[in-house]
Design a protein around this nucleic acid. Structure first.
Lengths: 363, 363
DNA sequence: CTGAAAGCGCTTACAG
DNA sequence: CTGAAAGCGCTTACAG
C-alpha cells in the first residue's frame, strides 16, 4: 500500500503537507496542492487510509444500525426495510456509511469469560461513530455495552433509557384507536397476535404474567392499548387470548395466525404488525373464512402491501422514522445534544374490518 | 476512553498480556486471563478498539456492498433487498459487518482536483476488507479506485473485468427464453422496457446507437437476448421499440410503462425487471386494457409480489446470489483465490401472457 | 504557508 | 508463559 509518507518523499514535501492537500485545502497553496494530488494519483495513492485516520481523529465516518436477530430478518420485513431506507437517505446526504450490526441474544448458559469476550467482539468494536438501536429489548447486553462505552446512541422503538435520545410512536394510543374501531363496529370477542414479548423463543398463548414481564417495548405498549380499549367496552381483558409467534419468520407467523384463529368465538383479530395480519388473512382464506364477515382483521404499519390487500391498519411514517433517527444521531455525534421525537400515526379503515356477523352463534 | 494500557497497569501486567487475554486465549494462562478480563470489565474496558486493531492488523471486520445510485434505492427494489439479505446471512455467520457504500456517478464537469479528492473520500476509505460490486456500470470511478487500491472484489451483475471474481446470470439466454415464450404464443409486435443503459438519466425511446453503447451489463444482455429471439421469429429487431426509464424511481417506471404501452400495434411487453412489469400492469389497468388479452407482459426476477400478481417472469435465485457473492468475497479475502459462478434461471409462465387477440387490427 | 514531532490504540515477532 | 519494543498510517498543535 502506498502511504502518505511515500507520496511526501516523492513530492519533496512533508507528510503533513500531503495530509493537508487531501483534508485541509486551505492550509496549503493551490499550486502545491494540485501538484501533490497529481503525484499521489500517479503513484496510486487514493487518499488517507481509514484506519490511520480514524485512530488519529477518533471519527470513523459510519453509523451503525443495531438490530436484534439476524440481518436476514432486517431485510425480510418490509416495514423494517422502509425504516432502513430512511436512515440510508440521511446517511447518504451526510456522506456517512451505514453499517448493519446484528446483535443476537447471548447463548443460554454462557460462562462469564466467553460472555466478556463475545461482547467485546460484538457488533460495535468501534466500527461506527454512533448507533441507532432499533427494536431492541430491555437490558440487551449489546445495548448496555454501547452505553457503557459511551457510544452516541438513538433508541428507536426500544425501551426508553434515562438520558438517551428516542424516536418512536405513541404505540399505546395508536393501538387503542385500532381496537376501538372494532369495538365501535360491535365486536366483543377478540384475539391478539404479536411477534415477540421476550427473546426466549416462546411460542403460543401468552400468560398474563408473561405479558407483564415483556421486555420488548412495542408489542408491550400495543397490547396495553388494545386491552384498554377492550376493557373500556366492558369486556374483561383477561379473557382476551394473546398469541406470540416467538420470532420473525413466515412459518412462525403462519402458526401464530392459525392459533389465534382457533380461539373460540372470536370475531376480530388485532395483529401487531401488517406482516402478522397478512398471515392471518392467508390462513383465514385457506380455511375458507370470509374476511371481514367471519373475522375482522386489523394490522399495524401500513406497510407496502397493506393498501393492495385492503388491510385496515395503523399508518406510521416508517421512512420518516428512519430519517429522523439518523439526523438525530448525526446531531448527537456533532454536538452532544440529546432529543426525543414521537411521530404521528393514523388509523386507516379499509376492507378487512366490518360488523360482526349477528348469525355467528355463541357457544 | 479506557485503553489496554490502563487495564494493564491496573492488573500489573504488560499491555500485550491484555491484548492476548482478548485475542489469543492460548498465549496466556487461564487464571491470568480471567483476572485480566474481570479487571477490564470493572474498569469499563469493553475490548480492543477497532481503529487501533485494524491499523495494526490490517483487517477491519466488515465487507462493503457498492451500489450505484442512492442507498434509498437499494432498499426500494425488493429484488435488491433479497440480494442484500443473502449477503447479510453469510456476513453474519462469519461475524463480519456489512457496510453499504453508495457510489453515485461523478457530477458533470467536475475538475480534476475535486475529482481526486472526492474519489479519495468516496465509499471505501479502507472501511472494509473487501467489496461486493453490485450492478455497477463499466468504468465507474469508484470501481476503478477500488481496483487500483487492490481491494478484494467480487463483481455481481456488473461488467466482467479481467481477473476479477464474478457472480451473475446468463442474462442473455434467460431473456431469450422469455421472449421465445411470447413468440411461440404468436406475438410479433413487441415493446421492451429497461431501467437504464447508461448513467446519464436518458429517458424515453432508445436509439440503436445508444443500445450499442450501453454500460450496464444486465439490461444490455437482456435486450440482446430478447432481440435475438425476436429476430429468430423473422421480425426485424430494428423495428422493436426499447424504452428506458432512466432511473429507479416509481414515477420514472410509470412514465416508461406509459410510453411503451403507447407504441403502436404492440401485443406484448418485455420488461427487464418485475418492478418495471408491475408498472406496466398498473398503467395498463388504469387504461382499461385487459391483461393478458390486450397485452401480454413478461417480467424478470420473480420478486416478492410476482406470484401474487400472476406475473409471467424469469426466476433467479436472488438471495442465493447474495450468499454466493459474500462467501466468494470472504474466501477471496482469506486466500486470495478468485472464482466465478453463473447461477441458473427458470422461466415461469403465469397469467400475464396469452396468445395475441386475433381481432386486434393491424394498422 | 510549511515542516518536525508527538501520539492515537493496538498486535505481534522476539527475547527471555 | 510473559514482557519490552517497534510500528501500523494518520492528524494536528506548534514553531517557524
Amino acid at each position: 500500500m502506498v502511504t502518505m509518507h511515500e507520496v511526501a518523499r516523492e513530492a519533496g514535501v512533508s507528510q503533513a503537507a500531503v495530509s493537508y492537500a487531501f483534508n485541509r485545502p486551505g492550509k496549503i497553496s493551490a499550486g502545491q496542492r494540485d501538484r501533490i494530488l497529481e503525484i499521489a494519483k500517479r503513484m496510486g495513492y487514493h487518499g488517507p487510509d481509514a484506519a490511520g485516520r480514524s485512530l488519529r481523529s477518533g471519527r470513523v465516518g459510519a453509523v451503525g444500525v443495531m438490530v436484534q436477530d439476524t440481518l436476514a430478518y432486517a431485510f425480510s420485513d418490509p416495514s423494517n426495510v422502509e425504516l432502513l431506507r430512511g436512515i440510508a437517505e440521511v446517511g447518504e446526504l451526510a456522506d456517512v456509511a451505514v453499517t448493519l450490526i446484528p446483535s443476537p441474544p447471548p447463548p443460554p448458559g454462557e460462562d462469564e469469560t466467553s460472555a466478556t469476550i463475545r461482547e467485546a467482539n460484538a457488533g460495535l468494536r468501534g466500527l461506527v461513530d454512533g448507533v441507532i438501536v432499533h427494536a431492541m429489548p430491555e437490558r440487551h447486553p449489546a445495548v448496555e455495552a454501547a452505553v457503557s462505552r459511551g457510544v452516541p446512541m438513538v433508541l428507536v422503538d426500544s425501551p426508553k433509557m434515562k438520558g438517551m435520545s428516542f424516536v418512536g410512536l405513541d404505540d399505546e394510543t395508536a393501538a387503542h384507536a385500532a381496537a376501538q374501531h372494532l369495538v365501535m363496529l360491535g365486536h366483543r370477542r377478540f384475539g391478539i397476535v404479536v411477534d415477540r414479548l421476550r427473546a426466549d423463543r416462546h411460542v403460543g398463548l401468552v400468560s398474563r404474567e408473561r405479558m407483564r414481564r415483556g421486555t420488548e417495548k412495542v408489542p408491550r405498549d400495543r397490547i396495553r392499548g388494545y386491552l384498554r380499549a377492550i376493557a373500556d367496552a366492558g369486556v374483561d381483558p383477561d379473557d382476551v387470548p394473546v398469541v406470540e409467534s416467538g420470532g420473525f419468520r413466515q412459518d412462525l407467523y403462519m402458526d401464530a395466525a392459525e392459533l389465534v384463529l382457533a380461539q373460540p368465538d372470536i370475531t376480530a383479530v388485532l395483529a401487531m404488525s401488517d406482516v402478522l395480519a397478512f398471515a392471518v388473512l392467508d390462513v383465514a382464506e385457506r380455511q375458507g373464512l370470509n374476511i371481514p364477515h367471519d373475522i375482522s382483521v386489523v394490522g399495524f404499519d401500513d406497510a407496502h402491501d397493506a393498501a393492495n390487500r385492503g388491510l385496515t391498519t395503523v399508518r406510521q411514517p416508517l421512512a420518516e422514522k428512519g430519517r429522523v433517527a439518523a439526523q438525530m444521531l448525526l446531531d448527537l455525534i456533532e454536538t452532544g445534544k440529546r432529543r426525543s421525537t414521537v411521530l404521528p400515526t393514523e388509523f386507516v379503515a379499509r376492507e378487512t374490518t366490518a360488523r360482526p356477523r349477528p348469525a355467528r352463534k355463541q357457544r
